[in-house]
Amino acid sequence: MLSLDDRLRANPAAVTREAEGELVVVLPEHGKFVVLNRVGMRVVQLADGARSLRDIAALIAEEFCADMAQVAADVLKFSGTLCERQVLLPVAPPSS
């Protein structure tokens, strides 16, 4: 179960192409694909392993002039789906 404090990064094995404002992500190991809209594409682009999901939600809420609470909920749910499909991978929290 993800939380807004989690950090994710794009699966380095995934191959992506932009097509008419959408992002096509193909995972060679599985031969499966997902197509992401503009917001989904931003989530994947911003998931660099350093930003938390809260950071990503804040950036997206600002970029798309949307309600932060709603965006945070959507980013959390959407990121969970992308993790299940291995498009995004969890990053271990830094050891203190």
């Binding site: 192409r17 097509a19 008419e20 959408e22 193909v26 190991e29 031969g31 694909f33 197509v35």
Partner: peptide, 21 residues
């Protein structure tokens, strides 16, 4: 078929080579 969906569908139906990163 929308462009992105078409690209994903065609690529994923390319046997053998879709598995070559």
């Amino acid at each position: 078929l929308p462009c992105g969906r078409a690209l994903g569908e065609l690529a994923s139906n390319t046997p053998v080579m879709v598995g070559d990163p």
